[in-house]
């Protein structure tokens, strides 16, 4: 088990290094010229040459990569062309909002996916009324869901807000729901929850279906297993059969899909944050694209990519804990 853990974490580190190398290579072929961005477009050739020298742009690629990594480890991701602040400062300001959105959205995805799976596998009467539309929604582009949600719940029904996180103050955790609760601000909490609901559900729908499908098939398989028939015939209540025998034994595939989807959601969050003006790093990335702010784009890719890789590694480890055969 320890060996598996070390190997899996080691491979995650290697992957993060490779991701950083990819970003570095892209930065060096990028059409956005860092010197022009640094000095302005009218700089004299001599000044450009001097800046290239001092920025180390004339060094060979491997040397520059080592520089890049050194800066990275020291928390220096360059300066944004757009905000003229260090990218790291920007990311620190925006990351908590993204984490909060994705984590709640993930919870919703798992609950919705579980409901989808259980209602499908047990053939709850009338539940296809809820599954059919969900399947169609899952094939829609997320931006359409977001806009449809805004038109319906904000413009027509006036029950949900359409942008931002709400007026509550963020505190130590940066998670508005937790901070307002800790600060004893029920109004802020309610508003934060309201603001969170629509973007979180929009982001959750496609992952919910992905998780739900896998779980449903694994539930269906388990329901046909001999030990389930045995459990039923020895007189256990249906609830007990489900809780003790069926759900436990069919959780594995759903878990692994859930982990993958969590990583996936960190990419999907970009569009959703932009539409809801959610002050997270996805919105930051979306705003950086039109201005060709490559340092910002590279940094967000690196941060979200690292989260993705770490999430996948954690899922593998969790699965190995749940099923030791996997770590053999």
């Amino acid at each position: 088990m320890t060996r598996f853990l070390l190997r899996r974490l080691g491979s995650a580190v290697v992957l993060i290094l490779i991701l950083s190398a990819v970003i570095f290579l892209l930065q060096s072929v990028s059409t956005a010229d860092p010197v022009k961005a640094y000095l302005g477009a009218n700089a004299s050739p001599a000044a450009v040459a001097a800046a290239r020298q001092s920025l180390g742009l004339d060094d060979p690629l491997p040397v520059r990569y080592v520089d890049f990594l050194t800066n990275l480890v020291q928390g220096d991701l360059g300066v944004s062309y757009r905000t003229h602040r260090p990218v790291v400062t920007d990311l620190q300001a925006f990351l908590p909002a993204t984490m909060e959105l994705v984590l709640w959205s993930f919870v919703i995805a798992v609950l919705l996916g579980g409901l989808f799976a259980v209602s499908g596998a047990l053939r709850w009467r009338g539940s296809s009324i809820f599954r059919g539309p969900l399947l169609v929604l899952a094939t829609a582009p997320p931006f359409l869901l977001a806009l449809g949600g805004i038109v319906l719940f904000y413009a027509q029904l006036h029950i949900l807000p359409a942008n931002g996180r709400g007026p509550g103050e963020t505190g130590p955790t940066g998670f508005l729901l937790i901070d307002t609760l800790v600060a004893g601000d029920p109004a802020g909490f309610a508003s934060a929850a309201q603001h969170l609901l629509l973007p979180a559900v929009v982001l959750a729908i496609a992952p919910a279906i992905a998780i739900g499908r896998i779980m449903r098939s694994s539930l269906t398989n388990t329901l046909g297993a001999d030990y389930v028939r045995t459990a039923e015939s020895k007189g256990l209540t249906p609830f007990r059969v489900l809780g003790r025998h069926v759900v436990r034994n069919s959780l594995g595939p759903g878990l692994s899909m859930a982990g993958l989807q969590l990583g996936f959601m960190f990419a999907g969050v970009v569009v959703v944050e932009q539409i809801f003006s959610w002050p997270g790093i996805g919105n930051y990335l979306a705003a950086s694209i039109p201005t060709s702010d490559f340092p910002a784009i590279a940094a967000v890719t690196l941060v979200l990519g690292t989260i993705y890789i770490v999430a996948n590694a954690l899922v593998d480890v969790l699965q190995a804990v749940a099923d030791p055969r996997l770590s053999a």
Binding site: I23, G268, I289, S292, G305
Partner: peptide, 21 residues
Amino acid sequence: DLFLALPGTLVAIAIVAALGY
């Protein structure tokens, strides 16, 4: 496997950002 383990969408965004839109 290495490619599969990288976040595809994000890498694609970075590639387009580097090459031009």
